[in-house]
Amino acid sequence: MNNHPAAGTFYGVGVGPGDPELITLKAAKLISRCDVICYLCNDADSDRPGRSQSKDIAQDVINDRASKAIEIAIPMPYSRDRTAANKAYDQGAKAIKSALEQGQSVVFLCEGDPLFFGSYAYLQERLCEAFTCLSIPGISSPNAASAVAGIPLTMQKENYAVLSGRLSDEKILNHLREFDSLVLMKVGQSRPRLLALLKESGRIHETVYVEYATREQQKIVYDVTTLGHEAGPYFSLFIITRHQRNV
């Protein structure tokens, strides 16, 4: 719904997993022409305050703009406490709302795909009743990780699931038993626990680990039994597939 006929449009633009060359033509076009560029960034308490992963990915496109865009940075605390995150999204939505009411087009840069574990979804939820919100899909991390590892995510009649690594042990084990192929997202701090669950399920030798897919610091581990039991980075995942395929 758009209650402001002269208002601008809010775009959630997927900039992909990290390699700037994987930004779609449509995404690059919108970034090049919009009035306002919006993105999440590290808050003041982080090691690198103001740093934005999504903006870094799109920086070349931003630099090539004919004119400088207005920028709205939304500082985001790295905490599992949703209260602080919701407050940041509320404040960000308020700033975006002001720009939209002035008739400006606003592009929100989102790593991967805007509606796949994407931060854009929280802003869309706050703005969609009053403004036109459009999502431009981007390459998600499971697809990027599958490509760099050279592993099909699913084939023929295989079933496939994407799980958050923050789910309970019971839910993860149940899915490991039920699904032929899975991607475990948000590995990070959960990596030691997830490795133990993969071993318990008997699927540890069907697992590949990928960090920072398509980025300069990309890392692929085909034998995950060699991984240390310390926490991994935020941008990491496990791909689990059956060795024997009924094709």
Results as ranks from 00 to 15, higher is better:
residue 1 M to K: 12
residue 3 N to S: 12
residue 4 H to R: 07
residue 4 H to T: 05
residue 8 G to F: 03
residue 9 T to D: 01
residue 9 T to Q: 07
residue 10 F to E: 00
residue 11 Y to T: 04
residue 13 V to E: 04
residue 22 L to R: 10
residue 24 T to F: 03
residue 26 K to T: 10
residue 26 K to C: 03
residue 30 L to E: 06
residue 32 S to N: 12
residue 32 S to P: 06
residue 37 I to T: 10
residue 37 I to N: 05
residue 38 C to F: 04
residue 39 Y to W: 12
residue 40 L to M: 08
residue 42 N to K: 14
residue 46 S to W: 00
residue 47 D to Y: 09
residue 48 R to E: 04
residue 51 R to C: 09
residue 54 S to H: 01
residue 57 I to Y: 06
residue 60 D to A: 14
residue 61 V to I: 14
residue 63 N to F: 09
residue 66 A to H: 12
residue 70 I to H: 12
residue 70 I to M: 12
residue 71 E to D: 07
residue 71 E to V: 08
residue 71 E to P: 10
residue 72 I to Y: 00
residue 73 A to V: 01
residue 75 P to V: 06
residue 77 P to G: 07
residue 78 Y to M: 15
residue 81 D to H: 12
residue 85 A to C: 13
residue 86 N to P: 04
residue 87 K to W: 00
residue 91 Q to A: 15
residue 93 A to I: 04
residue 94 K to E: 13
residue 95 A to P: 01
residue 98 S to P: 00
residue 101 E to P: 09
residue 102 Q to N: 14
residue 107 V to R: 03
residue 109 L to F: 06
residue 111 E to R: 03
residue 116 F to P: 03
residue 117 F to W: 09
residue 120 Y to F: 15
residue 122 Y to V: 04
residue 124 Q to L: 10
residue 126 R to P: 05
residue 130 A to L: 11
residue 130 A to N: 15
residue 130 A to W: 03
residue 132 T to N: 13
residue 133 C to Q: 09
residue 135 S to D: 01
residue 135 S to A: 14
residue 136 I to K: 06
residue 142 P to C: 06
residue 146 S to M: 06
residue 147 A to K: 04
residue 154 T to R: 08
residue 155 M to S: 11
residue 159 N to K: 15
residue 162 V to T: 12
residue 162 V to K: 04
residue 162 V to Q: 05
residue 167 L to E: 07
residue 167 L to K: 11
residue 168 S to Q: 08
residue 170 E to S: 13
residue 172 I to D: 01
residue 172 I to V: 13
residue 178 E to K: 15
residue 178 E to P: 08
residue 180 D to Y: 06
residue 180 D to F: 01
residue 182 L to F: 06
residue 188 G to N: 12
residue 192 P to E: 10
residue 193 R to E: 02
residue 195 L to C: 09
residue 195 L to N: 02
residue 196 A to G: 07
residue 198 L to I: 10
residue 204 I to R: 08
residue 205 H to Y: 10
residue 210 V to R: 01
residue 211 E to M: 05
residue 212 Y to S: 13
residue 215 R to H: 06
residue 221 V to D: 04
residue 231 A to P: 05
residue 232 G to Q: 11
residue 232 G to E: 00
residue 233 P to Y: 10
residue 233 P to G: 09
residue 235 F to M: 07
residue 237 L to W: 00
residue 239 I to D: 03
residue 241 T to Q: 11
